[in-house]
Amino acid sequence: MALDQQQVRDIADLARLQLDDNQITEYQKNLSNILDLVDQLSAVDTSAVEPLAHPLDAVQRLRADEVSESNQREHFQQCAPQTENGYYLVPRVVE
């Protein structure tokens, strides 16, 4: 399945990836090739098959409701791009 340039731009926007125009053409070609590869699946009859999300037939384990974590703000914010008074800073978000 071939994607057009606008579709590639839309997907890049959805995934918040900045691409320049010359990259768009390259991604258009590569993504179309990948979609051709995966389109093989459409020929398979899976009407009676339950999807498998997880390789083992396991069920979710439950955690006791206990507070096990303590404040590590200073430690965690050492790797942050920008903080102030314990807050992570980003350009102003308008609601």
Partner: peptide, 29 residues
């Protein structure tokens, strides 16, 4: 009204100083 978060062991108490009750899981490290 749980004591800890839905997927982590950080406290849920209201009114703590910013990011002092956000553990590695809550921060999405």
């Amino acid at each position: 009204a749980t004591k800890s978060k839905i997927f982590s062991g950080a406290a849920t108490a209201y009114g703590a100083e910013a990011n002092t009750q956000a553990c590695a899981v809550d921060l999405g490290l």
